[in-house]
């Protein structure tokens, strides 16, 4: 695997210096086997007690953690309730009834025409979009984090350009830990299980770069709504 753009020999020189420093030889089967073994076995750190203890209510933990991160959390029983829930949220925040989402089948099945005047569009975010709607493939209870895989179903820009980001999280896909979410990713029916970007989102955009005070809405969304859907 020769890189094309490195100065002549940089790769070999760096790797050889590393081996010298480690006192290792280039084709040390035992070392290679130890590394390969870790990549295959993928050992996990002990899961945080807050999600590992028996009887943990992962859904409650997920909601609690996400709310601590200044996101709004709503719950719906079925898809039919989602347009009205979103409309209510946008209305409460003085936002226009407009949003954009990707090709995700569940999002595409939502009937926004049930709310009068609700405009929707598809595809990657445009500069003047006010709200983006995405679907998470997992919710991670330990920190209230939502995991999104980029692609036609979920254009990545929808989560960063609009002022409002809304994410649908299937209740059945609430898992305990990051590692559990990665396992779901590895199960995706795709040649390369890794999307171009995996976005772990935990709250709206924020900064503390001016005088150490937290301000919401730095470059990305000023508000984040998570909708926990029961029929997914």
């Amino acid at each position: 695997m020769k890189p094309t753009n490195s100065p002549a020999g940089a790769r070999e020189s760096i790797l050889s210096k590393i081996r010298t420093s480690l006192g290792a030889s280039e084709n040390d089967d035992a070392r290679t086997a130890a590394a390969e073994q870790r990549i295959t076995a993928k050992p996990r750190a002990a899961a945080p007690l807050r999600v590992a203890e028996t009887g943990t209510d992962l859904l409650a933990r997920f909601k609690d953690e996400l709310q601590r991160q200044l996101a709004t959390v709503a719950e719906v029983a079925t898809a039919t309730e989602i347009p009205a829930a979103i409309a209510g949220y946008l209305h409460a925040n003085n936002q226009p009834l407009r949003l954009r989402h990707g090709a995700d089948a569940y999002l595409s099945s939502l009937d926004f025409s049930s709310v009068e005047g609700f405009e929707t569009a598809r595809g990657a975010a445009a500069p003047d979009d006010s709200a983006g709607l995405s679907a998470a493939f997992a919710g991670i209870a330990e920190t209230g984090t939502m995991a999104l895989a980029s692609g036609p179903d979920n254009p990545v820009t929808l989560g960063y350009l609009p002022d409002t980001h809304i994410i649908i999280v299937p209740k059945t896909r609430i898992v305990a830990t990051f590692e559990d979410a990665f396992e779901l990713l590895r199960e995706r029916p795709s040649a390369n299980p890794m999307p171009r970007t995996l976005n772990l989102i935990t709250g709206p955009s924020r900064t503390a770069d001016i005088g150490g005070r937290i301000v919401i809405g730095a470059h990305g969304p000023r508000r984040l709504l998570a909708i926990l859907a029961g029929d997914l």
């Binding site: 991160q69 990545v156 976005n199």
Partner: peptide, 24 residues
Amino acid sequence: ATGQEITSYTTFSTGPRRAGDPDG
């Protein structure tokens, strides 16, 4: 670092945009 449980955004990037990707 900041005492946060996790930052707002943690992003894993793997290669350039894929065929069919609308952005990236």
